[in-house]
Every structure is written in structure tokens, then in C-alpha cells.
């Protein structure tokens, strides 16, 4: 393994751990808001680590830039989605009641 590969693997594994934490959070946390908490933070970091790891391996700056761009898009998307879901869960008392039952 070259040094670059070792660094990339380290980043990727770290990213995987964050994903795992996020997933456990979705499964274990009691209501919508705290689940969102788990997903958005942990998964975005996880994706970031993965993107950086892959960027190290990418070889050209162009591909590395594309990977980081993808990360940025995912951040924008999940931040918005998180806001929307959180708002909906506050507005929609049906959902809230359901969560309470669950």
C-alpha cells in the first residue's frame, strides 16, 4: 500500500464510523428532531471524510474538485431537507402524535 492509499483508507474508515453512528442514531433516537440531529450531522461528516479520502486517491485536481463539489451539494440538500422535515414535524401534529405513540 502506498502512503496515499493508507491515508485514503483512514479517511474512508473514519467516514464509515460516522455513518454507522448516524444510522444507530436513526434507529435508537425517540423522535423526529433528534433523529434528524443524528442523520444530518453524522452523515454529512461521514460523506465529507469519504470525499476527502477519495480525493486523495483521485490523482488529478479536477476529480478532487468534483468530489468536494458533490459534498457541497449534498450538504446544501440535506440542510434544506432537514429544515423542511423539522418544520413539518412541528406543524403536523398527526406526525407528532404518531411519534409519541411509537
Amino acid at each position: 500500500m502506498t502512503p496515499a492509499e493508507v491515508i485514503a483508507a483512514a479517511f474512508a474508515v473514519t467516514g464509515g464510523i460516522f455513518y454507522l453512528a448516524g444510522t444507530v442514531g436513526i434507529l435508537r433516537f425517540p423522535d423526529v428532531q433528534s433523529r434528524l440531529h443524528a442523520v444530518t450531522k453524522a452523515d454529512n461528516l461521514g460523506l465529507g471524510f469519504l470525499a476527502v479520502g477519495l480525493a486523495v486517491l483521485a490523482g488529478t485536481a479536477e476529480v478532487a474538485a468534483k468530489l468536494l463539489f458533490i459534498w457541497f451539494l449534498a450538504l446544501a440538500g440535506s440542510a434544506t431537507a432537514c429544515q423542511l422535515i423539522a418544520n413539518a414535524s412541528v406543524d403536523d401534529d398527526v406526525t407528532e402524535r404518531e411519534q409519541a405513540d411509537a
Partner: peptide, 15 residues
């Protein structure tokens, strides 16, 4: 509509 959605729409279109 919510402010954040408007924000996303604004940055998404050029992208």
C-alpha cells in the same frame, strides 16, 4: 413556503 427552500432554489438553479 419556507425561507430555506427559497434559498436552495436560488442556488440550485445556476448549479
Amino acid at each position: 413556503t419556507m425561507l430555506v427552500l427559497t434559498w436552495l432554489a436560488r442556488i440550485i438553479l445556476p448549479l
